[in-house]
Design a protein around this nucleic acid. Sequence first.
DNA 1: TACTTTTGCTAACACTGTTAACAAAATAGG
DNA 2: CCTATTTTGTTAACAGTGTTAGCAAAAGTA
Lengths: 201, 201
Amino acid sequence: MGLSERKIRQQLEVKNQIIASSREIVQAEGWAALSIRKIAEAIEYSVPVVYKHFESKEAITSYFVAEGFAALKHEIESCVIQGDSIENRVQQVAKGYWLFASKNPQDYELMFGVGLPTCEMHQQVPSIKELSTYLLEIINELIASSKNENISSCIKYRSFWSILHGVVAIELLSLNRWDNVCPSEVLEDTVNAFIQSIKTN
Amino acid sequence: MGLSERKIRQQLEVKNQIIASSREIVQAEGWAALSIRKIAEAIEYSVPVVYKHFESKEAITSYFVAEGFAALKHEIESCVIQGDSIENRVQQVAKGYWLFASKNPQDYELMFGVGLPTCEMHQQVPSIKELSTYLLEIINELIASSKNENISSCIKYRSFWSILHGVVAIELLSLNRWDNVCPSEVLEDTVNAFIQSIKTN
DNA sequence: TACTTTTGCTAACACTGTTAACAAAATAGG
DNA sequence: CCTATTTTGTTAACAGTGTTAGCAAAAGTA
C-alpha cells in the first residue's frame, strides 16, 4: 500500500488539469460555455472522471470563487504601501480592487455574479471571510484616525465595499465606454468622498 | 381581410400570456428555471408558438430588462417630492432605487446580471436611456446648486449610479444579514457622503 | 366548392448536468 | 505465477435545455 503516494500525485495532477482546462475555456469563451463534457475532452478523459474530483459543476465554480477572493486580497495587499497614511492606504485598497477586476473580469463576474456571494458563502468560504476582515480592519483604522470615533464601523465597512463593487460593476462589466472618462477616476473620486465623510464628520 | 383585427387582438392576448406566465415562473422559481417548454405548457400551446412572438429566449428576458428599467424609473419618480431641496430629492431617488430593488429582486438581478446591461443596451433600449438621462439631470442640478460648478457631472453621475447599484447588489442580492443594520441605512449614509462631497468641494 | 394562407403540432438536432452499469487495468494475496 | 479484489475509466442512458424543419389541420378567400 506504500505505492499509493504516486497515485495520489497522479490524481492531483488530473485535478489540476481540470482546473487549468476550465480556466482556459472560461477565458476563451466565458462561463456560459464551460461544460463538463468540454472539460472531459480537454483533459482527455471521459465525463465521470471529472465527477471523481468535483462532485458537481457548481463545485468547480465554487473553487474559482474561493480562489478568486484569495487572489483579490493578494492584489489589494500588493497595492497597499505599509507606513503610508490611512487615507492613502484606503485609496490603495480601492486601486487594488479595481486592478483585480480589470485584470480578471471573468473571475470577478463569477465572484459577484447571480446570487453570489450569498450569506452562507461568507461564512463558509475562508478566503471571503479573510478579505472581509481585512477591509473591516482598514475601515476601523480610518475611523480611529478621525475625530468622531462614534461612527458605525459596520455601516462604513459595508458602504466601502458597496462603493468598490458598484463602481467596478457599473464601469467595468457594463462597459460604459461612451465617453473618455477613465473608470478608475470615478472610483478614486467616489472613495475620496467616502474618506472625507469620515474625516470631517 | 377586415377580419384580421380580432386576430391581432388574439395574438396580442397570447403574447401577454407568455409574458404573464414567464413572470409567474420566474417569481416562483427564479430565472434559471424559466424555459420555453414551461412557458408553452403554461399558455397551453406547443413550443413553436412561443417562438412566433419572441424570436428567442433572450428576446423574452430582454423584454423584462426594458420593462424593468421603465418600472425602476417609475418607482424613483414616485418617491421624489417635487419642490423639495435638491439634496433631499437625491436621497429620495436613492430611496426609490432601493425600494424597487427590494420589491423586485428578480427583475433587478436580471437587469444588472451577468454581462447586462452592456453598452449596446444602453443605446438601444429606450427605457435605460431615459433613466440615465433622469439621473444625469438630477446630478447636474445638485452640482449647479453647489459653489464649485466646475465639477465633472459625468464622473459624479457615474459615481452616483455606482453607489446605488453597489449598495443594492451587496446588501440585497448578497443577503448580508449577519448583523442588525438596516441595508437602507448604508445607502442613506453613502449617498449623504456623496452629496456632501459635491456641496463642500 | 376549390384554392391558398395561416396556424399549430410533432419530432428531431445538438446541446446541457448527472449517474448507473459494466469492462479493463492495476493491485494484493496465496 | 496465478487468482481474487479493488480501483479506474468507459459507454450509455435519463431528463432536461434552446431551436427549427416538416407537416397536418383549420381558416380565410376566390
